[in-house]
Amino acid sequence: MAQAPVNIKPPKFQETPPMPLGDDPENADPMAKEAIALETKSLRVFYGSHLTLDSISMKVAARRITAIIGPSGCGKSTLLRCFNRMNELLQGASIKGEVLFMGEDLYARDVDPTEVRYRIGMVFQKPNPFPKSIYDNVAFGPRINGYKGNLDELVEKSLRRAALWEEVKDRLKKSALELSGGQQQRLCIARALAVAPEVILMDEPASALDPLATLKIEDLMQELAKDYTIVIVTHNMQQAARVSDYTAFLTTEGGGAPGKLVEFGPKDVIFTNPRDQRTQDYITGRFG
């Protein structure tokens, strides 16, 4: 895999076509006209000998928002972590099957997981800024990477992209911990953007935020999706319905059974006319 370029520049994808909903979403393959950023093929994930995700085959369209929904314990976050090899940081985790990033095997022997995590950034449920200044939080990644360009510009660009600049431009040297929860989360997004990722994974990015801060994050996601591929795990179905282009529904039969992909499709189909009864039961709130 090529060295991660450390500058803010949209990744080189083809011109994004309009959402290919087609005349009949039932017959059209919605992914056929999409550039594919990530893909799993028969992915299985184990913690020790315990199978937690089984036979996941799905595609993540480039510069779209893909939401992963499903009940607690179905493996949503596990799947998300497979996309940037975060699971490897957990003791005993292993995978079988394939995860492709831009068509290349993400788990190939010669791929450096650290570099993967630069190109595929992650934002977590609870905002986790470093106990440093706002500026240093954003500059952290590029500095480690030996960024040679104008760091001030990069910090400003990243904060602007994360829709935070106007709120913090006069106090960049103040501690990031003084920001509100919503601002901290946008700072974490700015920090992820500063290392020029191509994909941003978000694990329940708004679940610790108030409704207004949540909507700001959602607006930001829509804006970022013009240049970045976004995968979001959310418990909030309305959020998935509002922001995603594609939605994947995972579930488990419970009792430690592995999570499986039940249905994947354009969100309009998933939320108005899902094909699988289990999806219908889950999104209408009649699950379990």
Partner: peptide, 9 residues
Amino acid sequence: QQPMAQDLR
């Protein structure tokens, strides 16, 4: 109630 799917229909 934020109805979805068949409920919405």
